[in-house]
Amino acid sequence: MKAPDFAYMRPDSLDGVFAALAQYGDDARILAGGQTLMALQNMRLAAADVLVDINRVPDLPDIVEEPGHLLIGALVRYAALAESPLVQQHVPLLADAVPFVAHAAIRNRGTVGGSLALGDPAAEIPACMLALGAEVILSSAAGTRTIPMREFYLGLYETALRPDEVLTAVRVPKRRPGQFHAIDEIVRRRGDFALAGLAVSGVAEKGAVEAISLALFGVADRPVLATDAADLLIGKALDPAQIETAKDAVIASLDPPDDPITPPAYRRHIGGVLVQRLLGQIREKLA
């Protein structure tokens, strides 16, 4: 199918983007990497009337080191994220996550900001940002606000972004001493959206878990933090019994949406399997 007869604009500043959003409102959609939006346009699914291309907006940041954080601009592409020495050094979970994202040609074009703003429930980067305790920066003509990832997703493809706002960057805490991480997902084929996935980030101190976040993706209408399981692990050693307990807590907490191809029971089950596998891996690494 060919895309419908939409209009296109390419503002040369963030102010231009804001003006476009003000003018076109719900009819407009921001075009970043386009790796989802273009496919939807081509399929004439919920097609937008006006695409506002932000690819040449100069005032969006690249990857910037800040005290305690990395600031990652919305237009940073997956491939650049994985190749960035700053990311590899300070937020290695993100570098490890990128190979799970689709395929090389998609990773060359798809952007961090696009992935976060879309919020596909089975996507890797939103879950990683959730596990890392990142915060997104949302800008509009009225100013800039910062929202923690855990408050950003409100439902299926529903975010805290207001119609006049642009997600311009995400601020990610740098790793601390003792920090561990892991990511894995269950897919039928490499690069597919996950049937279930798990991103883990945490800190261990003297063999005990001081902090941990378990962000699951592909199992709900948005990426979700398994807080019950995390609470159970805090202050404990990652021994097999604790891992089993965490797994059970995760399974109990999941209620995946029904879908004609993959039943909820399957996603719930492999969510548990991932918890067991990744915590097992972390346990081995910590030992």
Binding site: M43, R188, R189, R190, G191, D192, F193, I261
Partner: peptide, 12 residues
């Protein structure tokens, strides 16, 4: 769609 109807791909 090609995303939902799964054909065999190279890795597997």
């Amino acid at each position: 769609t090609m995303a939902d109807y799964l054909v065999p791909m190279a890795v597997e």
